[in-house]
Design a protein around this nucleic acid. Structure first.
Lengths: 134, 134
DNA sequence: TACAAATTTGTAATCAATACAACCCATGAA
DNA sequence: TTCATGGGTTGTATTGATTACAAATTTGTA
């Protein structure tokens, strides 16, 4: 699906800035930071503002068009793939890797919270870093 | 278990500052921020430095004596309870609530990462906020 | 005691994120 | 067409959590 339709489907008015940011997320599954998105897009869009990137990413998150990952403690990271999957971060190199969820977690919610979203974050050492260390 | 033993068990030299910080985490299951810990402890320990709180919390995390929660995007939060449980954050009031894990998530790790830690973060609206809204 | 290593402290600096006000631009009414 | 309105964008200034760093203090050991 293209970025324009993706925005409309989530009730977001598709301005040109929102389209290129959404498009970036849909075509780069690298869990980029705001800064990475801004730097990548400003080459072709010199007038793009960093504030717009921040505003847009918050909007995408609020409307459910993208995920805000807090697995990396340094920066917020964003994921255009909102289907159910877990995220692994290598504490050695910082790389974030998608992992499929075979069995989703089941939690005890006696207190009666309304659950809107569940994220699974995994920390460890990736295969490349294990090789380098040994 | 007391803070002193807890530190020793995780291979941490128990200085007086480390003991009071560990003790605070073990006796306050509120997922406090660095700042909350600092402000609570400096009343009885006026010479305590904020840097020491940061240093100690990082050490506790590295040694597995406490959990660093990144569920709250504003601040790092710490949890002295390292047993398996999930965390719920209310996107309305910011409160963090522990939830028991009935079934832990099972993920597909074809790429061969070495998994050290898994955290389940849940976002939604708590019961109190639901009442207030309706 | 003396010395080295580890720990703590306070200050300065960093930098992601936000606040804010000015500007731009699409839309619709007259 | 002109004008007004409001949402969207932009740039700058600011905030505030966290870190860097070096000096001071404490601890362990001989």
């Amino acid at each position: 699906m293209n970025a324009y339709e993706h925005l409309l489907k989530h009730g977001i008015k598709p301005s040109s800035q929102r389209i290129i940011i959404m498009d970036y997320l849909l075509t780069h599954r690298t869990h980029p930071t705001s800064d990475e998105i801004y730097n990548a897009l400003k080459v072709q869009n010199p007038t793009l503002s960093k504030t717009t990137v921040y505003n847009t990413l918050r909007l995408l998150e609020e409307k459910g068009a993208a995920l805000n990952l807090s697995i990396d403690e340094k920066n917020a990271r964003y994921d255009g793939d909102t289907t159910d999957h877990a995220h692994f971060i290598c504490t050695c190199c910082g790389k974030i890797i998608d992992m499929g969820i075979i069995t989703p977690p089941e939690v005890s919610n006696e207190i009666g919270c309304e659950i809107k979203q569940m994220q699974v974050y995994i920390k460890g050492i990736c295969k490349d870093c294990k090789k380098t260390i040994n």
